Amino acid sequence: MDMIHEAAHVARSEAARAALASQSGSEFLTFRLGAEEYGIDILKVQEIRSYEAPTRIANAPSFVKGVVNLRGVIVPIVDLRLKLGCESAEYNDFTVVIVLNVRGRVVGAVVDSVSDVLELNQDSIRPAPEMASAVDTSFITGISNVNERMLILMDIEALMASADMGLFDA
């Protein structure tokens, strides 16, 4: 679990540094969902925690795992692996919850593992490909290749606030 605490410390210090960073680059927290690697704006990340089984909410969609009490705040927990259609969603020692601040609310996102924090300049980010109308790519902001890694950049606020999540009023 030391890795999780270290990652949380890194995320906090990186978030502070990102606030002072120049406009030329943005910092992203990278994480894995199945075989894919994603990146989200580090400024949306409040902390990174080890996974603990939440209290289930009746009639919630399967990807809403329930709620946890985080220092007096009741936080909904969304399993992004289930929401985004990953083949499996195992809960093990690497499974973590990225605690996000989205539209003034705290929300937890379950991911397979957290990788690192990367600074990307706009030149290294390519637009997301156009897909058939059956595939919702509205939350994908771009694609970047970093050291032979394909990184899918995601607007986590748009995803979490989408109507089908049911976390925010329309």
Rank of each mutant, 00 (worst) to 15 (best):
S162V: 02
L151G: 06
G72H: 11
N101C: 05
F63K: 11
S26T: 15
A134R: 09
V111M: 06
L43V: 12
L100S: 07
T30C: 14
G142S: 08
F94K: 08
I48F: 04
R105W: 06
A60T: 06
A161H: 05
N69F: 00
I74R: 09
K44R: 14
E157C: 07
V146H: 06
V97Q: 05
E27Q: 10
I4E: 01
S138C: 12
R103T: 06
G25V: 05
L80Y: 03
V110Q: 04
V45L: 03
L33E: 04
E87W: 01
T141M: 04
G166V: 11
A158E: 07
S138I: 03
G85M: 10
K44C: 03
G39K: 08
I143N: 11
E52M: 13
F139K: 14
T141Y: 01
V99Y: 01
A128C: 15
S113E: 14
A128G: 14
A58P: 09
V96N: 12
N69Y: 04
S88T: 14
M3H: 07
F139S: 15
A16M: 14
C86Y: 04
E90C: 07
E27W: 00
S13A: 11
E157D: 15
E47K: 09
S115I: 02
V107M: 03
V67N: 13
M3Q: 13
V107W: 00
V106R: 08
F94Y: 02
G104R: 12
V97C: 09
S62F: 05
S88P: 00
V114T: 15
T141L: 09
G72C: 12
S144L: 09
R81Q: 07
A60Y: 02
G142Y: 10
M154H: 00
M154E: 09
T141E: 13
A163Q: 09
D112L: 02
S113D: 10
F31G: 07
Q46V: 12
Y51E: 06
M3K: 15
G108E: 06
D41L: 06
L84V: 08
M131E: 10
G85H: 06
L70P: 00
R56I: 01
V68S: 09
V78N: 01
L29K: 05
A8K: 06
R81W: 04
L80I: 03
G108H: 03
E36R: 15
N121E: 15
L118N: 02
R49L: 14
D169A: 14
L20W: 05
D79Q: 03
P127Y: 01
K83G: 03
S115C: 14
E157H: 08
M150G: 05
